[in-house]
């Protein structure tokens, strides 16, 4: 071995962006959304977020230790998974189920594939898909936002004993004496009753829904900030939204009384949060510039198809998981030609 001259290929100048710096910035961008969720749904949302984040970090720590990969908690990625998962769950979701979701998300969605950088799918969504299939009733039980006394008492179902059925919330909701509470999210109302919630309400978050998915405006601001910080590829959220609008538009023009308007499609459900913070997952999305646009359009269009014609009111979770699954294929199709090669 000769020593002395070190020969390396380009690039020779690098911007110092480490994994943990990216992840910390994403966490920072998620904090306002989490804070809004807590303000809106109170103590239960706080406990939910703490549980998912805590269990996600613990699971990550345990798997890293068991597989001898060193301390991977410090890269903050488990914190993001935990936070995102908590934000996509209903605020009154029993904590033990949330813990199951966080464990499955990290263990099945990430650790078993080999940890950060090797996961095929977004871990938070893997966890959520698991509990969606395991506890379909609990995950579609919604509670009203801005309940009086939300900072001093928790929603009864939150503190369900582990492995037991969620405590019924009907009496608790009835005790709140809310006018016009139907227990349905805007998406369910639209799908089953064809009633469209005013756009302004879903834009500013004055509606029922998952803990962190209600305010499209806030998510948009946080996402834009992250894009401006160059911590996410802006092409992904933009093409997801474009895909959703393009798919929803013809149906809406055909029959506005039956099909939702493109605005409603954008602002309702988990689309906004998913577009900005989940579809843009760096590991699970394609790597080429052309690829991410195809990937985004695919997710957006699929979301609308599932919403309109599937059995469930919301489809963005499955759309992204499917998008993640075809991601590597899209990457290999859209490999740019090497300069000078035929």
């Amino acid at each position: 071995m000769t020593r002395g001259i070190e020969i390396r290929t380009s690039p020779h100048l690098k911007r110092v962006v480490t994994v943990d710096k990216i992840m910390r910035t994403v966490v920072l961008a998620l904090l306002p959304i989490a804070a809004f969720a807590v303000w809106q749904f109170g103590l239960s949302a706080l406990l939910l977020l703490v549980t998912t984040t805590g269990v996600a970090v613990l699971t990550e720590w345990w798997f890293a230790r068991a597989s001898g990969r060193g301390n991977t908690v410090a890269d903050w990625s488990a914190v993001i998974t935990g936070l995102l998962l908590g934000l996509t769950l209903p605020p009154g979701f029993p904590l033990w189920m949330a813990a199951v979701a966080a464990f499955v998300g990290i263990a099945l969605g990430k650790a078993l594939f080999g940890g950060l950088g090797y996961n095929v799918m977004n871990p938070a969504l893997v966890g959520r898909a698991f509990v969606q299939a395991a506890f379909p009733v609990a995950i579609t039980t919604w509670t009203p936002a801005f309940a009086p006394g939300r900072f001093t008492e928790v929603i009864p179902s939150t503190l369900t004993a582990p492995f037991m059925q969620p405590i019924a919330v009907d009496d608790w909701i009835a005790g709140l004496n809310l006018d016009g509470w139907s227990g349905a999210t805007p998406l369910a109302l639209q799908k089953f009753e064809h009633i469209e919630t005013p756009i302004l309400d879903s834009f500013t978050g004055m509606i029922a829904g998952s803990a962190g998915e209600t305010s499209a405006l806030l998510i948009l601001i946080c996402g834009l900030w992250l894009a401006w910080q160059r911590m996410l590829d802006w092409r992904i959220p933009v093409s997801v939204m474009a895909g959703a609008v393009l798919m929803a538009l013809p149906f809406w023009l055909l029959d506005p009384s039956l099909y939702p308007s493109p605005w409603f499609v954008l602002c309702s459900g988990g689309l906004m949060l998913a577009a900005w913070f989940m579809a843009s997952d760096m590991v699970a999305s394609p790597v080429t510039a052309k690829g991410v646009v195809i990937y985004g359009l695919f997710i957006g269009a699929l979301t609308v198809i599932i919403r309109l014609f599937g059995g469930l009111p919301e489809g963005v979770m499955y759309a992204i998981l499917l998008g993640n699954a075809v991601g590597p294929l899209i990457s290999s199709w859209t490999q740019p030609r090497v300069y000078g090669a035929k």
Binding site: P94, M97, L108, L112, F130, A133, A134, F135, P136, A138, T160, F163, M164, Q165, P166
Partner: peptide, 27 residues
């Protein structure tokens, strides 16, 4: 085993549950 209040994990008796449990045993 756990009384009437037990929350069943529906996914386990659906087809995906078979894959999950088989995977866990193989692991």
């Amino acid at each position: 085993l756990f009384g009437p209040d037990f929350q069943p994990w529906l996914i386990m008796i659906l087809p995906p549950g078979g894959f999950f449990v088989l995977g866990a045993w193989l692991l």
